[in-house]
Write a protein that binds this DNA or RNA. Structure first.
Length: 271
DNA sequence: AAACGTTACAACCGCCCATAG
DNA sequence: ACTATGGGCGGTTGTAACGTT
């Protein structure tokens, strides 16, 4: 056991020594050109040979990442996730958990890093919005959330790897996610977040408005959206608070067929 | 105009796993 | 069995761009 660990450490040290002589940081246009030329010649593989041939002072891993996230053709770099893409991400995240590569495979032109970043920003945004909404607004909204959420600090938004089987908006059970005190955060089940999207016309945008800007009161929500958003949120989630299952007891929604088809799609991130 | 805060994105790290030689 | 490599993932950091004060 210890020997194995020792060997592992040795390997890692060796690797680290090698990697310590590599270039890091922002990629230059010349490096991109070299990388593109290599891919053109040999295809998107043999990443480590790029360095061993002295073409670039980058690790194979770094080269691969650069190619996958920036250089491979047909990437939608620089354009925001559309509502449709957002819907897909929400649904697939609910289904697969944080399997970003798998989710990204269903979105043309998006990489796992894109999806991860998008999700992470979205979570932060939601946390901020919900905190603002529940902490500061009218007594009505405070009471609406009051039973479920106590927010001394911005709520921690999290989803579980596997879909949860209880209510959509809930406090976390102390057994499943140990170190956190129940009142410290709300756990948004994937289905709750997805639930905001199960209506084709009901998206994050609908509830909270576009993320395009602050509206003067320190949050990203136009004032009239606060009420509308809360109402919609409660309409959506409130009806599900008794349990996240569908009629047949399945969870999440029994729309697997849709995703089975998606599963057959080729992954753009694999070659 | 400058300072400050927020957001989105790029890139990295560390860990893990699978596979091939 | 061991090693190198590719790949996936979660977490984190740095920064440019943008908005607000």
């Amino acid at each position: 056991m210890e020997a194995a660990t020792g060997k592992k450490k040795k390997t890692k040290k060796k690797r680290k020594d090698v990697e310590s002589r590599v270039r890091k940081g922002t990629w230059k246009a010349e490096e991109d050109q070299v990388l593109l030329k290599h891919v053109e010649q040999y295809g998107p593989r043999e990443w480590s040979s790029i360095r061993s041939k002295g073409l670039l002072q980058r690790t194979g891993k770094s080269c691969r990442l650069r190619w996958v996230n920036k250089l491979q053709p047909n990437l939608k770099t620089g354009c925001k996730f559309t509502e449709e893409e957002e819907r897909v991400v929400i649904e697939l995240q609910a289904r697969y958990g944080n399997k970003w590569a798998r989710i990204a495979a269903h979105l043309t032109g998006r990489t796992d890093n894109d999806v991860k970043n998008f999700w992470s920003s979205r979570q932060k945004r939601l946390a901020r919005i919900l905190c603002t909404t529940s902490c500061s607004s009218s007594p009505a909204s405070a009471s609406a959330y009051g039973n479920l959420i106590s927010l001394p600090e911005p709520p921690m938004l999290r989803t579980s790897e596997t879909p949860v089987e209880t209510g959509d908006l809930m406090t976390e059970s102390s057994s499943s996610f140990p170190p956190k005190i129940e009142e410290d955060f709300i756990a948004f089940s994937p289905e709750m977040l997805a639930g905001l999207g199960d209506d084709p016309n009901f998206l994050f945008f609908d509830v909270f408005g576009s993320a395009a800007g602050d509206h003067g009161d320190g949050d990203m929500i136009p004032d009239d959206h606060h009420q509308l958003g809360e109402q919609k949120l409660l309409e959506k989630t409130g009806s599900k608070l008794g349990g996240g299952e569908n009629e047949d007891g399945d969870f999440p929604a029994d729309d697997d067929d849709v995703f089975d088809e998606l599963d057959d799609l080729p992954s753009h991130s694999k070659w």
